[in-house]
Design a protein around this nucleic acid. Structure first.
Lengths: 197, 197
DNA sequence: CCTACCGATCGGTAGG
DNA sequence: CCTACCGATCGGTAGG
């Protein structure tokens, strides 16, 4: 049975993100993707133009999800103290990962297999995405809410900590996404607050 | 010119870790590794028994480097307060990564391409390596030095933050390894110390 | 979405 | 360490 194009395309991307997440893009063959969908490898090409095209759709969708979360986080915490603004960004980031760890992990780990142009585009978007993290840290340092440190390095430290989640999060794991978000936002904010005992 | 076996073997591993780090294990061919050494692809097999064998040597060596650093860190900070013990572990971890980011990054990212048995062994060693991080956090919570939190989750947060370094550290970068180690150990310890203002 | 097929490349071996 | 070669698999196309 032939399935309508848009949902079939999406089903291909879902099967692919599962495999790319588990084995990596380069170690996954188009025939393995097709096998998940119970069709022939060559039949995939009725819906996608290349293997890289599938990777690109996944990566682009993940990037958009992170961007949208950051926009919501910024809007929700606008005018609030730096710690709350950082917390909102961290929560948004964790939620995107927990909502679809395979999508996030492909975005975070497999973008290097994109063509040069797309790779450069993703790197730019990642940098733009990270800017508000750096900015809120710098703001917090300026207001005295945060300990003086290197804002770019602190942002990288925090984002790397959060991104690790994509590799190990399981929806049926010990901790719910909400609890992880609570803990992670506490850990992230504390990273920047001096111990005054 | 034929080169003596042990150093040649090591040269192969070095070339391979560079390529595995850049493109990933699955996307690197044995011919590319050989090309770096200016020999034929088939000639590699005079020194190694398989491509996976090369990966294994790299991963095993990296694992040993982390284990040795943790042992040194534990010994150096024995009997000291939790914050200092955690700091010693963090510094050791950062130093291993900075000493050879390609080695560390292959260990951290490419172990899933190992055979099932070796993969399981590495997972066990990783868990054993992380135990002292969890333990010192739990100790610090017991003594009241650290804020109550989930020790395993906090250890994962910190280790994920540190591991990100393997992907972006450059010896000729903006910050020296020493400065990064300073900042990272501060950030890591602060993660666990409450703001008491 | 299938069958049949393509050239290219893969990891690895034989035999020097 | 080289030349010559192996079967298997790769991403992708033609033509229905």
């Amino acid at each position: 049975m032939t399935i309508e194009a848009p949902s079939r395309r999406r089903a291909i991307e879902d099967a692919a993100s599962g495999l790319f997440h588990e084995r990596g893009y380069a170690a996954t063959s188009v025939r393995e993707i097709a096998r998940v969908l119970d069709i022939q490898g060559a039949s995939l090409y009725a819906h996608v133009s290349s293997k890289e095209d599938v990777l690109w759709s996944i990566v682009d969708r993940a990037a958009s999800a992170f961007e949208a979360a950051a926009d919501r986080g910024k809007a929700a915490a606008e005018g609030r103290p730096p710690a709350e603004r950082l917390s909102a960004l961290v929560r948004g980031h964790v939620e995107v990962i927990a909502a679809d760890p395979r999508l996030a992990s492909v975005f975070l780990s497999e973008w290097r297999h994109l063509s040069a142009g797309r790779r450069a585009g993703i790197l730019e978007r990642r940098d733009a995405y990270e800017a508000p993290f750096r900015d809120v840290i710098a703001d917090g340092m300026a207001t005295g809410d945060f300990t003086p440190t290197d804002p770019a390095l602190a942002a990288t430290f925090i984002l790397n900590a959060l991104n690790g989640l994509a590799a190990w999060y399981r929806a049926d794991g010990r901790l719910t996404a909400g609890r992880i978000a609570d803990h992670y936002s506490d850990l992230a904010v504390r990273t920047l607050t001096e111990d005054h005992r």
